[in-house]
Simulated assay, not measured.
Amino acid sequence: MRIKISVIIPVFNAEPYLAKCIESLLNQTVHECEFIFINDGSVDNSVSVIERYKQIDARVVLLEQYNQGVSAARNKGLQAAKGDYIGFVDADDYIEADMYESLYHTALKEDCDIVLSNFESEIDGHAVLTAYPFPVNQVLNKAYISQEVLPFFIKSDELNTACNKLYRRSLLQDQGVQFPLQVALGEDGVFNMAAFSHADRFVYMDYTGYHYREIIGSATRNIIQKDYFQRALDVYHVELPSHFKAILAEESISRLKAIKLIHNVMAYVHIYFKPTASLSVSKQIQYIQTMIGAEEVRKALPIYKKEMKLTLNRYQKVLLYFISNRSWIGIYFITAYSRFRN
């Protein structure tokens, strides 16, 4: 059987969600697939779940590695993949039955290197759709990628995920595109920036087939172990690939980075001020004060205000006012009001 699509699924202690993920893969309306699961040192019964489905369907492939992280797991899958195109799914998510047929049909019809689609997130019990400001169902060429898509990666995290895309395998292999190791945050973004920078043609489909599941309480539960703001600063300071500097002026890169940083700050205040037993109120206040007082934030705020003032809604303007004035009390009450309204 000629394999049309290789789907790569890294697995680490995903037992509660794994069966639904696997069944959504096996139910794909395009049959010529292989589903490459990479067990990354799970200590629960994830392997047993995969083995059970492997006995039922020969398209299930199981590879093993010892807890090297999601990037190493995906790279191992890339090395083993045989399909014409490659997709990625996280083990606690699930997809619609026609997702890969829809993306693959478009890839073949338009001879695309990459096909992009929307995705739906389940956050606090609410469905949130992520879509993109690109022309729909049109072949977008290298010039458009350079002028619109690559800058989008610098100013926003929304395009980072690899899971709502289909990639031509030969593009990834010929250009040596892999996920970076020892990157604490944004490995998907680095991978995608490299893939898109080498792509000649891509299509954005106004289609939603991927369902991202937020593990309940994950953000606030891990707030002590994962310093989200420090990670945002790491991304802010990271050196971009050389081809970006050939495409964009240093001033433009700095401007786009400033927009992303303040976007992140405005999102993180909700995480840090969300009621949780794992973090005391005094610690929450300390996090907020550190974040809004950071030198990088103070430097980025004027740039953000200038660039985004016409697109901000009333709530965002008020929140930005309190951040600008380093008022943690104002931030506390405005985020509490937002939670009440929602």
Rank of each mutant, 00 (worst) to 15 (best):
L261H: 03
L279E: 15
D234L: 12
D227T: 03
R255Y: 00
A246D: 13
M291N: 05
Y268L: 15
A267E: 11
V269E: 01
S278E: 15
I285A: 10
K245V: 01
S252I: 02
H237Q: 11
S242K: 13
T276Q: 07
L279P: 00
L301S: 06
H237N: 11
A294G: 05
I271G: 03
L301V: 14
K274Q: 14
S254T: 07
A267S: 10
P241K: 03
D234H: 05
P241G: 04
A258E: 00
L261V: 03
V281W: 12
V238W: 06
Y287H: 14
S242L: 13
S278V: 13
Y287S: 07
P302A: 12
K274A: 14
K274L: 10
E296C: 08
D234M: 06
Y287N: 13
F273R: 08
H270F: 13
K299C: 07
K245T: 08
S282W: 07
Q230K: 12
S252F: 02
E251A: 14
K283G: 02
K245W: 06
V265N: 06
I271L: 14
Y228S: 04
V269D: 02
A294H: 15
I253T: 06
F273K: 08
E251R: 08
M291I: 11
Q284I: 02
E239V: 10
D227I: 04
A267G: 10
E295A: 14
I285P: 01
E239I: 12
V297P: 07
K283I: 09
E239A: 08
P241W: 08
L256Q: 09
K226N: 10
P275I: 06
E250R: 03
K299L: 09
V281D: 09
I247Q: 07
T276A: 10
E296K: 09
K305E: 14
K260I: 00
E296M: 08
E250L: 05
P241R: 03
V269N: 01
L301N: 06
R255G: 03
H243G: 00
S254V: 03
N264P: 00
K257S: 00
A294D: 15
V281C: 03
L301F: 05
Q284L: 04
A300M: 07
L256K: 08
E250C: 04
I285E: 15
H237D: 10
